[in-house]
């Protein structure tokens, strides 16, 4: 959301700055008694507003859009930020906090099993409380591959020494060679 907020801030900030200056200039132009407009062709908008009643479909639609956009913005901004970093336990240095991204944990899991014979591909999805490791194999008989994968991945997860390690789930998928 930070990036979206940053883009919105730049766009709306520039729009507000430009519009504020232009409107102020138009007001000065009007107060000086000069006819016409400087930059903003506002006469068309003013005519439209004089021709349409509050109950017109177009006005009601604009009202609905304003409510929808406003609520979307408020809900998006009030939503708590995603905690994508998992904290390592490690040494009890109380002024040092070390963390690894959930993607990084997934990479560690994938790497731990990638060297196993019979593993042809891996992918992972790590959340705060669960980590799913998907392993593809072309082996017709998988034997104890799933056990090996589970052991290696569990060892890698334990090696990270997370404060609250996610529960590991292994999904072994057979694919054609």
């Amino acid at each position: 959301m930070r990036t979206v907020d940053r883009v919105l801030a730049l766009v709306l900030g520039l729009a507000g700055l430009g519009l504020g200056i232009v409107v102020a200039a138009e007001v000065v132009q009007g107060l000086l008694g000069r006819p016409g407009h400087l930059v903003l062709p506002y006469s068309g908008t003013a005519s439209w507003l004089r021709e349409h009643a509050w109950s017109d479909g177009a006005v009601l639609t604009i009202g609905g859009v304003l409510v929808a956009v406003g609520l979307l913005l408020v809900l998006a901004e009030l939503k708590p930020r995603r905690k994508t970093l998992l904290v390592l336990d490690g040494e009890p240095e109380d002024d040092v906090v070390t963390a690894v991204s959930r993607t990084g944990v997934g990479r560690a899991l994938e790497q731990s099993v990638s060297g196993l014979s019979g593993v042809d591909g891996t992918s992972s999805v790590v959340r705060r409380r669960s980590a799913k490791l998907t392993v593809r194999t072309a082996l017709r008989e998988t034997g104890d591959l799933e056990t090996q994968v589970r052991d290696r991945a569990a060892q890698a997860l334990a090696g990270l020494d997370l404060v609250a390690g996610p529960t590991l789930h292994v999904d072994l998928r057979r694919v054609s060679a």
Binding site: V100, R107, D120
Partner: peptide, 9 residues
């Protein structure tokens, strides 16, 4: 800590 993609496929 930024873990690498490494040899994972």
């Amino acid at each position: 800590l930024d873990l690498p993609r490494g040899t994972a496929r």
